[in-house]
């Protein structure tokens, strides 16, 4: 099995601060890889660089052997690399259902289709709605499908964010703290679902997570980030016993 995502000496600076510092990593196809590190170590920034939100100051990104650095975020999405956000991005003035459905590219999203060829996309839209409802049912949000998204609780918003990523059916998903603010039972369910998706559809996962014990049960490999640099990588056990990692985590406590 080949690698699906790798980077070569990726650098991103904000003024004097180097938020991502020569990061070289490699994610195997159909694996679940974790990314941990103390607050402010540059994990989210790394995701932002990978998905085209920021242009890297140096380095290369390959996704399925294609260069994707320099692409716009929407182009990265089209390549099959989808991400979620640390603070849920919820459109308050839409129903929960629409919040999920907006994630899928839809033939009705062109102006002409919206005006003249409504028949064509309505069928697609109906099927999409069924799929969205199914995903919401699984995540326990189906009761809220038709309520405004602003009425959700923080944890539910997190779930909505995941539902949105799930419905995109990507090749690879970058999840930024998918279980922050979610109750422990649900957190396990989310990771079970991740596992299942990988098995069923062969989706690769790259997950930032602060609940390390939980993460370690599911991942094949973990990267540890500190002050923009990757300081360790390997299987869950190797990494947890790595003295550098222990020092970073104890030092930051």
């Amino acid at each position: 099995m080949g690698s699906i995502l790798n980077t070569d000496n990726l650098v991103k600076r904000f003024g004097g601060l180097t938020a991502v510092d020569k990061v070289t990593l490699n994610v195997e196809e159909e694996s679940i890889v974790g990314l941990i590190g103390p607050n402010g170590s540059g994990k989210t920034t790394l995701f932002n660089v990978l998905t085209g939100v920021y242009r890297p100051d140096a380095g290369k990104i390959f996704f399925r052997r294609e260069r994707i650095d320099g692409l716009q975020p929407h182009q990265v999405y089209i390549k099959g690399l989808v991400r979620t956000f640390q603070t849920p991005k919820i459109i308050q003035k839409m129903t929960v259902l629409d919040n999920v459905m907006l994630a899928v590219r839809n033939p009705g999203e062109s102006l002409l289709a919206a005006l003249f060829r409504r028949r064509r996309w309505m069928g697609f839209e109906n099927r999409l709605r069924e799929r969205a409802l199914e995903i919401l049912r699984f995540l326990g949000l189906d009761k809220h499908a038709y309520t405004p998204a602003s009425e959700l609780s923080g944890g539910q918003m997190k779930l909505l964010e995941i539902a949105r990523a799930l419905i995109s059916e990507p090749k690879m998903m970058l999840l930024d703290e998918p279980t922050a603010g979610v109750n422990p039972v649900l957190a396990y369910t989310i990771f079970d679902r991740v596992e299942e998706l990988r098995k069923r559809f062969g989706i690769t996962f790259f997950i930032i997570e602060h609940r390390i014990e939980l993460l370690m049960k599911y991942v094949d490999k973990v990267y540890v980030m500190h002050q923009g640099k990757l300081i360790a990588e390997g299987g869950p056990n190797d990494v947890m016993n790595n003295p550098d990692v222990v020092k970073v985590y104890l030092g930051s406590v």
């Binding site: 989808v82 956000f85 308050q92 003035k93 590219r105």
Partner: peptide, 13 residues
């Protein structure tokens, strides 16, 4: 509401 969200989900903003 959120240009970044739109872009991250494949819309050419």
């Amino acid at each position: 509401e959120d240009e970044l969200l739109a872009a991250a989900y494949g819309k050419n903003v």
